[in-house]
Design a protein around this nucleic acid. Structure first.
Length: 271
DNA sequence: CCGGACGCCTGTCGGC
DNA sequence: TGCCGACAGGCGTCCG
């Protein structure tokens, strides 16, 4: 579910409640996530002060006095800040309880998420080590995409959704960015000109920045830390809009499958 | 190395 | 109304 804008929205929402606070305890009601929560995680965290919160791709990083807590929301994860006494729901698997009796509650119905302590620097963790650049950072550009994509026959949509190429671009924002850049999602990545990849890099940055500004996209279960939805859904140009008119030309939005993921595009605008 | 398929889970929705 | 398959915002792994 959550792509970069939703993770960034979660980060901004929870940070004011967490940074500078001390962790009282970690309550794990279900450890069976994508990677099981290691048994010693709670004792690693207890008593530590949260120095800072960061994001790397779709991972949230909690900088502690000793080491870093990594959190990934998977497909269906969301975070809330609540009084620790609030009754947990069926999929509220973990509470990070603070000394002020507020807690960060992690809900994840599909259990594709991840929660793990790792020694510093977190960037050396196997799951973070080989990640591509941040799309909103200085290393990401049309030039970079051009250099990485030469000789690649995979569809451009699959290519930009590969976190080893660039982080944070999931199925919604890949579709949206390609429409904005007027590039067909099925075009071979290695056969797109430098000029058009400049346009794509700009489109990715612009779509992600807009989505962050609107608090992300809520399709079903994503909520911000205060329980409110994100409002980018009303800005979607193609995602989930099969047979509806293209916002640029009025032609029908087409749907197909690329790499086992639903893909949406305008056959008139995108080539 | 690359590209495509699969599996991990639960919930929801549409069709019959 | 009920059941059943398809599908859902991610991503590591495996295989050819």
């Amino acid at each position: 579910m959550p792509e970069l804008p939703e993770v960034e929205t979660s980060l901004r929402g929870i940070a004011p409640h967490l940074v500078g606070r001390r962790i009282a305890r970690l309550e794990v009601r279900d450890h069976r996530l994508r990677w099981p929560i290691p048994a010693d995680t709670a004792e690693r965290l207890a008593g530590q002060t949260i120095a800072a919160l960061r994001r790397r791709g779709k991972y949230l990083l909690f900088d502690l006095e000793q080491g870093v807590l990594l959190l990934h929301l998977g497909m269906s994860g969301s975070l809330r800040v609540l009084p620790a006494t609030t009754m947990p729901g069926p999929h509220d698997h973990v509470d990070l309880c603070l000394e002020d009796e507020q807690c960060l509650r992690f809900r994840d119905p599909r259990r594709f998420g991840m929660l793990q302590w790792t020694p510093s620097p977190a960037e050396a963790h196997p799951l973070l080590r080989d990640l591509g650049p941040e799309p909103l950072g200085p290393a990401f550009s049309g030039d970079y995409l051009h250099q990485r994509s030469r000789g690649r026959r995979a569809p451009i949509k699959t290519f930009i959704m590969d976190s080893h190429v660039v982080v944070g671009v999931g199925n919604i924002y890949a579709n949206e960015s390609l429409h904005l850049a007027r590039i067909h999602p099925n075009r071979a990545a290695g056969r797109i000109s430098r000029e058009r990849l400049d346009r794509l890099a700009g489109a990715i940055r612009s779509v992600l920045a807009d989505a962050i500004a609107q608090g992300g996209t809520s399709l079903r279960d994503f909520v911000q830390e205060d329980g409110k939805p994100g409002y980018f859904a009303q800005s979607l140009r193609v995602y989930g809009r099969t047979e509806q008119p293209c916002p640029s030309c009025g032609g029908p939005i087409r749907q197909c499958r690329i790499g086992q993921r639903s893909s949406f595009y305008c056959a008139v605008c995108q080539h």
